[in-house]
């Protein structure tokens, strides 16, 4: 893959900063998301809360479903593939989706290896719980990183944990003497060149977004204040009482994440948020975030 291709891939991620990317399962939801001001939609068969409730193997959405959504909106359309399932990714690239999410929300196809994302022209986003995981994915060619959080839980606690972990580790790298970076790279399990880059620049080399458990305007603004550059909202919108109003409110709170008065405005008259799960009560095998490494 050429240097130019990688720049164009990260370039699209740059264009999505400061915005909200919404999970949608059909053309009608996609139009609601676009009208509400989403910067992109994620085309899915089922939102994470339903995947969690219904169980079974979760795979890439059907091409027919994704095409229906691509035809319905003019904003970028993303779709998910199973971790390590590079043929699902080939199919999505042939279909022409704008971004691929190699996602722990779907059932992993490979428990050892993620996709070699450098082989693709379409950009990838991958989830991460800490800096080491983020840099491993970037090493494989990811053009955007998002927190894993705990998808479909309606509970922000895991996204906060992952954001704090990534941001804290970045800050730590910036104050380490150069000779300690190799040991740090070993400890993080991350490529040395990327560790050096982060130490020098104080940020990830690709945009850093939040995902997993965002259900309210305040959740979105919290992630932005903690250093996320955009937010993904999965089940939080279409599992709530009034999806269009909630979608608009989360978009508003994301742009004005530093203005409590506007976040207050956005939080009023919204109806019920999606029901949330206590993540600490979930059994280990019910956690989605532990998929991938």
């Amino acid at each position: 893959m050429s240097e130019d291709t990688y720049r164009v891939k990260v370039g699209l991620a740059e264009m999505l900063k400061g915005g909200v990317i919404m999970d949608v399962t059909n053309a009608e939801q996609a139009r609601i998301a676009e009208d509400a001001g989403a910067v992109a939609v994620m085309a899915l068969e089922r939102v994470p809360a339903d995947i969690r409730a219904q169980g079974g193997v979760a795979r890439m959405a059907s091409p027919k479903k994704i095409r229906e959504i691509m035809d319905a909106v003019s904003i970028p359309v993303m779709a998910k593939v199973r971790i390590g399932h590079f043929v699902e990714a080939q199919v999505l690239e042939a279909l022409g989706v704008d971004f691929i999410d190699e996602s722990e929300v779907l059932t992993p196809a490979d428990e050892e290896h993620h996709i070699d994302k450098h082989q693709f022209k379409v950009p990838f986003v991958c989830g991460a719980r800490d800096l080491g995981e983020a840099l491993r994915r970037i090493g494989e060619g990811a053009a955007m990183i998002r927190t894993k959080g705990e998808a479909g839980s309606g509970n922000i606690v895991e996204a906060v944990r992952h954001l704090r972990s990534v941001m804290g580790a970045i800050r730590r790298l910036t104050v380490l003497p150069k000779e300690e970076l190799m040991a740090e790279s070993k400890r993080l399990g991350a490529p040395y060149e990327l560790v050096r880059w982060v130490a020098e620049h104080g940020k990830l080399p690709v945009p850093n977004f939040a995902a997993g458990g965002i259900a309210t305007p305040a959740d979105a603004a919290l992630c932005m204040q903690l250093g996320a550059e955009s937010v993904f909202v999965g089940s939080g919108i279409f599992k709530s009482e009034d999806p269009a109003a909630r979608a608009r409110a989360i978009v508003k709170a994301t742009t004005h994440y530093n203005d409590p008065k506007i976040i207050l405005e956005a939080s009023e008259e919204l109806g019920e948020a999606m029901p949330g799960l206590d993540v600490s009560k979930l059994a280990k095998e019910e956690l989605l975030q532990t998929r991938g490494w």
């Binding site: 264009m15 999505l16 400061g18 915005g19 509400a36 001001g37 989403a38 910067v39 978009v251 742009t255």
Partner: peptide, 14 residues
């Protein structure tokens, strides 16, 4: 700047 014109347009009107 660059970004999504539909998102920005909606914001400018609202």
């Amino acid at each position: 700047p660059g970004g999504e014109s539909t998102t920005m347009l909606k914001f400018l009107f609202d």
